[in-house]
Design a protein around this nucleic acid. Sequence first.
DNA 1: AGCTCATAGTGAGCTAGACTCATAATATTG
DNA 2: CAATATTATGAGTCTAGCTCACTATGAGCT
Lengths: 153, 153
Amino acid sequence: MGLDDSRHALNRILELTVLLNDDMARDLARRGLTGSRAHLIWELRDGSPRTQNGLAKALGVSPRTITGLVDGLVARGFVTREPHPHDRRAALVTFTKKGERASRALERDHIALAHKIFDDMPATTFRGFTRGLDEVIARLRETLATKGEHRAR
Amino acid sequence: MGLDDSRHALNRILELTVLLNDDMARDLARRGLTGSRAHLIWELRDGSPRTQNGLAKALGVSPRTITGLVDGLVARGFVTREPHPHDRRAALVTFTKKGERASRALERDHIALAHKIFDDMPATTFRGFTRGLDEVIARLRETLATKGEHRAR
DNA sequence: AGCTCATAGTGAGCTAGACTCATAATATTG
DNA sequence: CAATATTATGAGTCTAGCTCACTATGAGCT
């Protein structure tokens, strides 16, 4: 395939990332959330009381950043910090009612988006897309891994 | 197609956006650039002397933000502010030698990435992917337009 | 028991990117 | 010429990352 084709395809992918980002950011804003805060809630969704350290590892972000995100979510009433039963150092980040509602709303939004994108797509197109997508992701993973080796030296 | 399939596909797309972001951010950091600053350089690439206002519209960002981005690029020697020949209010953001080199490097990186992702992908897979991708983008555009109407009311 | 080391969280201070609002300087137009 | 529009920036805010230093506590080893 020609180079121009692959460049064009890459540009389309980048266009997609921008569109997705905009769409999701707007939905989140409507619910009083930012991307990072929503990400935290999303993580909290499976296994609600979590320590901040656990969240830091799950989100791939420093513990200090979690402190800030949790501060924001506490201020807006989505979560509370509860004492850990066995470890007085740790705080358990716990959903409030509002937080649980928001968590379910995020899930609904996610499903609705998947619907909107894929529902009336012909099955063959869908399969062709996902097949290619898997390959693209695999190539990207390779690339990242290779560069990671360099850095590790 | 089942709901689970579309949800899974959406998750894969999100995974892709994260991978792409990481990969590009790392390349940019290697060149002393951030995503936003690179974006500005990318825009400057086609039609080098540009006013900040023009850049603001091109990047879809407030003029004040451009001031900040240009400040950063000037401090690092990628661009200069030159006086506009006919309008003493406006500054023309202009590449330095270093900026031009960086601009070409970004282009090379872009091409290399497209290569890495698509080069050894079977043509049928590639076509299937781009076809689906076009549809996905179209659906997203629709969604955004619909919501935009709401906001416009 | 006591000492050392590790872990959980936060304060302080930095960079970066985005916004608004107000303002200065300059263009444009009636 | 006077009113209005445009270009850029200062001031101040918010979010989201980071590191480094520090407190409090937990765990393990003599």
